[in-house]
Amino acid sequence: MNIKEHIMKITLDLFSKNGYNATSMQEIADQSGIAKGSLYKLFVSKEDLFIEIFDMCHQELFNKAEDFNRYDILSPNEKFIHIVEFQIQYFIENEFVMMDFSERELPIQRSEKFEAVRNRNRIQKMNWHKDMLIAAYGTEIERYLWDLIVIFRGFLRQYLYYIIYEKRSLSTQKVSIFIVERLNAIVHDLLHSKADPLLNNSILHAPDDLSTKPENNEQFIRETLNGISLSIKGLQTSESNRHELNETLSLLSNEIWSNEPRDFLIRALMGHLERNSEIVGYIKQLKLLLA
C-alpha cells in the first residue's frame, strides 16, 4: 500500500466515525503520521481527498468482483448468490461512500467534479450488473436486461437500507439467496410470458447526466488514465516491470489522443495492461468510455 492509499484508508475511517464536516485536514494528517503541508501536496483539498476515496472504493469493488470469475466449480446460480452477498457486505463495510447520498447532505454533493466521478462509477456499476445477470441467466434475457437491472438494484438498495439505516439484523447470506431466488422467478415469468420490455440502455444516461457531454467524457478518460498511472505506482513489482507498464500507458494515452487513433493498437495496449489485476477495473472503465 502506497502513502496515498494509506491516507485514504485512514481518512475513510475518520469520515465513517466522525462524519465529513467534523473531520479536518489537520486530524487526517495527524492520524496518517505526516505533516499537514505534505498532505496538501498529495490532496489539494478535503473535497479532492473525498473524491479520490470515493473512486478508490468503487474501483476496489470492481477489482474484487473479478475474483468471482475464477469460481468454476460453482453453478451460475451459486456464483450469482456469492457475488450478491459480496456486494452487500462490501456496501456495509464502506457504507459512507457506497450508499445513496440522498440519505445525508454533504457539501461534496454540490461539486461538479464529484458529480462527474459519481456518474462515471454509476455507469460502470450498471454495466457490471449487466454482465452479472447475463452470466447468471444467459443471453436469452437480453431483451429484458435493463428491466432486470432496475429490479435487481431496487431489491439490493432496499435491503441495504434496512440493514444499514434501520439496523435490522438480517443475514447477508439469506438476503442474497432470497434476492436471487426472486429474480429467478421473475426471469422465468418474463421468458414464459414474453411480455414487452419497458426499458433499454438509455437508462445509463439520464437527460441531464454529465457523462453524456463530450467534454465530460474526455475528462473521464483523462481521470481513468490517471487512475491507471497511480495504480502502477502502487504495484508490488520490479522497477523494470513498472517502467514497462508506464511506457505502455504512455503509448496508450498518446494513441487515444492522436488525430487518427488506431483501434487495434489501443486494444493491444489495454490488453497488455489488464494482465495486472489491480488495473483491470480501470481498463474495463476505459473500454466503456472509448466505446
Rank of each mutant, 00 (worst) to 15 (best):
Glu85Phe: 05
Lys287Pro: 02
Ala268Cys: 03
Asp147Lys: 01
His58Asn: 11
Phe62Ser: 00
Arg182Tyr: 07
Ser24Gly: 12
Ala206Cys: 06
Glu93Pro: 01
Arg222Asn: 12
Glu112Met: 11
Asp13Gly: 09
Phe54Lys: 00
Glu47Tyr: 05
Ile164Glu: 14
Glu244Ser: 10
Glu278Asn: 12
Asn18Cys: 07
Met126Gly: 02
Glu5Thr: 15
Glu166Thr: 11
Lys17Pro: 03
Phe80Lys: 12
Met99Gln: 12
Arg168Ile: 10
Leu133Val: 10
Glu93Asp: 14
Ser193Pro: 04
Phe178Leu: 14
Met98Pro: 01
Leu14Gln: 12
Tyr71Asn: 04
Arg122Asn: 08
Ser176Tyr: 11
Ser75His: 04
Pro76Gln: 01
Ile83His: 03
Gln158Trp: 05
Asn276Arg: 13
Phe155Tyr: 15
Ile10Gly: 02
Ser45Arg: 05
Ile266Arg: 12
Asn241His: 10
Thr139Leu: 08
His82Tyr: 09
His243Thr: 09
Tyr90Ser: 03
Val44Lys: 09
Asn127Ala: 02
Ser32Tyr: 08
Ile164Val: 15
Asp189Gly: 13
Lys113Leu: 07
Glu95Trp: 06
Lys125Thr: 13
Leu148Ile: 09
Gly138Cys: 07
Gly138Thr: 07
Ile283Lys: 08
Gly271Trp: 09
Tyr90Arg: 03
Phe86Lys: 02
Lys287Ser: 07
Thr172Asp: 10
Gly19Ile: 06
Asn121Tyr: 11
Phe50Met: 00
Ala22Arg: 15
Asn276Ile: 08
Leu289Trp: 08
Leu61Lys: 06
Ile256Gly: 04
Ser211Thr: 06
Lys167Phe: 13
Leu252Ile: 04
Ala268Val: 03
Leu49Ile: 04
Lys41Arg: 13
Ile88His: 01
Val187Ser: 13
Asp208Asn: 14
Tyr144Pro: 07
Thr224Trp: 08
Phe264Asn: 13
Asp147His: 03
Asn184Glu: 15
Ser277Asp: 11
Ile266Ala: 01
Ala185Tyr: 04
Glu247Ile: 02
Ile151His: 10
Leu251Ala: 11
Gly234Pro: 00
Leu273Ser: 07
Asp208Gln: 14
Phe86Asp: 01
Thr139Ala: 12
Asn226Ser: 08
Thr237Asn: 06
Phe152Pro: 00
Lys36His: 08
Ser111Met: 05
Tyr40Val: 03
Leu42Ala: 05
His272Leu: 11
Glu142Phe: 04
Trp257Ile: 06
Asn121Thr: 07
Asn276Tyr: 14
Ile88Thr: 06
Leu289Gln: 14
